[in-house]
């Protein structure tokens, strides 16, 4: 098992190498003039040349790639032309906000989607089933950014019970930095009011991101539960007197989880990419907002950095999903 994890981690290295090369090529082939943009319209050719030297953009491409690679390993992920700060430092600053948002929405989607899927399968074709399926159809088609705007309109503007945007009030200082996730940090510090403030900011963007995965997880869970309920062993369990609750939440749930797990894994990537949209709507200071600003100014080092980080998170998530398969399906063996 440990050996399997180690081998999978080693296999990540060539994938990441290929990824950096691909991104590097894409970034250099594409037209665009980041230095010109950063220097402003009145920059002299001398200034531009000097800035190019500063960022190492005047060297031959293979050398640039080699420099980039060696830099990556030593934590030097290049400079952002736009923020004029090291990309690595920027990413470290913005990463926790994105992690918090992505995990909060994944948590909502799983914790609501799985029981709903189970229940709608049991009460198939009942009113609850029809209601949730209709909402699910809409939930999958709903654009995240539009849902975000609607939520802002309803809960921030009209009802005025949740903040419109941002991650924490600007005038107040967030809880002491431990994990960088404000809700967790507030709990660690035992600061209940800070936790409430952080949670109230997190709620709307997390819900906006969660609806579509929630709907998909629910649909997947519903169909696999219906399939499992028809299995012979469920009849045996009923025939020997086990309670419906025990059968459903223990014996059926675990069997129905396997196919749902695949969907959850795929949604990690979808959620990470979607931060670009939702963080823009809610001014959430995470990687998505950072990447959007970098893209709009054609500042490629941050884009490569963010893409790399997201790809790493995605690959690790897929590994976790593969390991979880073994938990839900004992026939899976790691060799």
């Amino acid at each position: 098992m440990l050996l399997y994890i180690l081998r999978r981690l080693v296999l990540l290295v060539p994938i990441l190498l290929g990824l950096t090369l691909l991104l590097f090529i894409v970034a250099r082939i594409l037209p665009g003039d980041p230095v010109g943009l950063a220097a402003g319209p009145n920059a002299t050719p001398e200034l531009i040349a000097q800035m190019k030297r500063e960022f190492g953009l005047d060297q031959p491409l293979p050398l640039q790639y080699w420099n980039y690679l060696t830099g990556l390993v030593s934590g030097d992920w290049g400079m952002s032309v736009f923020t004029r700060r090291p990309v690595f430092a920027d990413i470290l600053e913005y990463l926790p906000a994105t992690i918090e948002l992505v995990f909060a929405s994944l948590f909502i989607a799983v914790v609501v989607g799985i029981p709903l899927g189970l229940l709608t399968a049991v009460y198939k074709n009942g009113p609850l089933d029809y209601a949730t399926r209709t909402v699910a159809l809409g939930g999958i088609a709903m654009p995240r950014f539009f849902l975000g705007l609607l939520l802002q309109m309803a809960f921030a503007a009209w009802l005025d019970i949740l903040p419109l945007s941002g991650r924490y009030p600007l005038i107040e200082s967030p809880p002491d930095h431990v994990t960088g996730l404000y809700t967790i940090d507030a709990l660690i510090a035992g600061d209940w009011s800070a936790f409430q403030i952080a949670l109230s900011h997190l709620a709307l963007p997390a819900i906006a991101m969660a609806l579509s995965p929630l709907a998909t997880i629910m649909r997947m869970m519903r169909s696999s539960t219906i399939e499992v309920l028809q299995q012979d062993y469920v009849m045996t369990e009923r025939a020997l007197g086990l309670s419906n609750r025990l059968i459903l939440f223990k014996y059926v749930l675990k069997n129905a989880m396997t196919s749902t797990l695949t969907v959850i894994g795929l949604y990690v990537s979808w959620l990470l990419g979607g931060t670009v949209l939702v963080e823009t709507v809610f001014d959430w200071p995470g990687l998505g907002l950072y990447a959007t600003q970098a893209i709009l100014t054609q500042d490629f080092m941050p884009v490569i950095g963010v893409t790399l980080v997201i790809a790493i998170i995605y690959l690790v998530a897929m590994l976790v999903v593969d390991l979880l398969y073994g938990v839900f399906n004992p026939k899976v063996r790691y060799a």
Partner: peptide, 28 residues
């Protein structure tokens, strides 16, 4: 439910599909 398992036991045809594959036999 109190009758099932305690007073009436049942065995079905196909042993490959009547045990829950995701759980140890001890658990069941």
């Amino acid at each position: 439910r109190m009758l099932r398992g305690r007073h009436i036991g049942m065995i079905f045809q196909d042993p490959t599909t009547n045990l829950n594959p995701a759980f140890r036999i001890g658990t069941q």
